[in-house]
Amino acid sequence: MLGKLFKYEIKASARIFLPLYASLILFAIINNIFIRINNSSNNNQLFMNIMQGISTFAYVFLIISIFVFTLFVMIQRFYKNLLGDEGYLMFTLPVRTGEHIAAKLLASMMWVITSVIMTLFSVMLIAYNEKFFASFQEAISQILTEINRVFGVNGYAYIVEFAVFILMVLATNILMIYASISVGQMISKHKLLGSFGAYMGFYLISQFIISIILVIGYSAGSRHWTSIENIMQNNTTIPHFLFAGIMLLNLVFAAAYYTITNLILSRRLNLE
């Protein structure tokens, strides 16, 4: 059932994102063309500069809209589809509440990642010229060499760990939004205000917990370690442990937000 829910989730949001992505690519190509024309000729300078300015503005505006929409659709799909009138259908499907949350979370994560990739791709489209592939390859190999030089074999492990970490942070943040909306909907008369309040509350609590752990960790660690740099150079396993610790903490937060959302939607649903 999760697969089916995910399919409909993508179907519902694709009709908003696909046109946005298409126009982003289109404007990246237009920008690329203007840059080439302006570089190669001196004719009609002012007119072409204005045209390029307009298309650059449109392009930047599109990037901003894509990220605003990514956030907006994330919130709107959860609120409208589950807690609005559509919730009467969704919550009477023979599906576990957890599957609803998971389908929405996976779809949101997918759109955030796709939005980032599309934006990077559009930047490359603008920068594209005859020498592009050669210099792109060169840049990548330079980065890899540099990582290898500083971190050694561990460098690749860091890249993988960092990617996993980014995904976890993303999931945790989305679940935090879901948990806030769920808490907010329990306050019948002020759902929106309640959601904002809950978000602030969750934020403060998580910052508080993280600070405490950092202080404890630092005071415990400072007795043994002289500096972070020292550890990095002398002991290659400790950074991985630190990373694992941070990820574990993230996982605890994610699990907490998921549980709050699941409990509220299962037991304290308050459809109008």
Binding site: N81, D85, E86, G87, Y88, L89, P94
Partner: peptide
Amino acid sequence: GIETKKIVSYLPERTYLNNW
């Protein structure tokens, strides 16, 4: 629960179908 939802057909008093 899931098992009962399979055998209950429910018509709420509001429109629960999406628009798109």
